[in-house]
C-alpha cells in the first residue's frame, strides 16, 4: 500500500477547490468544523455524522495497571475516552478501495 498522509492543508485545499472561498478562509472553516466537533465531545455529547461515522465519549473506570517492563503495579485513574464507529458507507468504501 503506497500510503500518503493528508493534513488540514489538504482538507482546506479541497474546500478551496469545491467552494471557491479564499485559502485562508477555507483553512479557518476546516478548523471551525474540527473545533465544533471537539467542543461537543468535551461537553459529553455524541457526534453522529450520517454516512461518515459516530464519535462517542465513554467513561473508563479506575483500575490497577502494570508496567509491562518492570511488572510494577500502577494505579490508572478513571478517565474519559473517545471512540469512533465508522458508518457502513465508510467501511464499504474503505474495504472496496483497498481490495487487492
Amino acid at each position: 500500500m503506497s500510503e500518503n498522509t493528508l493534513t488540514r492543508m489538504d482538507l482546506s485545499e479541497a474546500v478551496f477547490r469545491e467552494v471557491g472561498l479564499s485559502r485562508n478562509e477555507s483553512a479557518q472553516l476546516v478548523e471551525s468544523v474540527l473545533d465544533s466537533i471537539s467542543e461537543a465531545l468535551v461537553r459529553g455529547e455524541t457526534v453522529k455524522i450520517s454516512s461518515f461515522g459516530t464519535f462517542s465519549v465513554r467513561d473508563k473506570a479506575a483500575r490497577v495497571g502494570r508496567n509491562p517492563k518492570t511488572g510494577e503495579e500502577v494505579p490508572i485513574s478513571p478517565r474519559r475516552v473517545l471512540s469512533f464507529r465508522p458508518s457502513h458507507l465508510m467501511k464499504d468504501r474503505v474495504a472496496a478501495g483497498n481490495k487487492s
Binding site: 500518503n4 493534513t7 482538507l11 468504501r93 472496496a96
Partner: peptide, 9 residues
C-alpha cells in the same frame, strides 16, 4: 482512506 491514505489532524 479508500485510497489507503492516512488523514492526520
Amino acid at each position: 482512506m479508500a485510497r489507503g491514505d492516512r488523514v492526520e489532524l
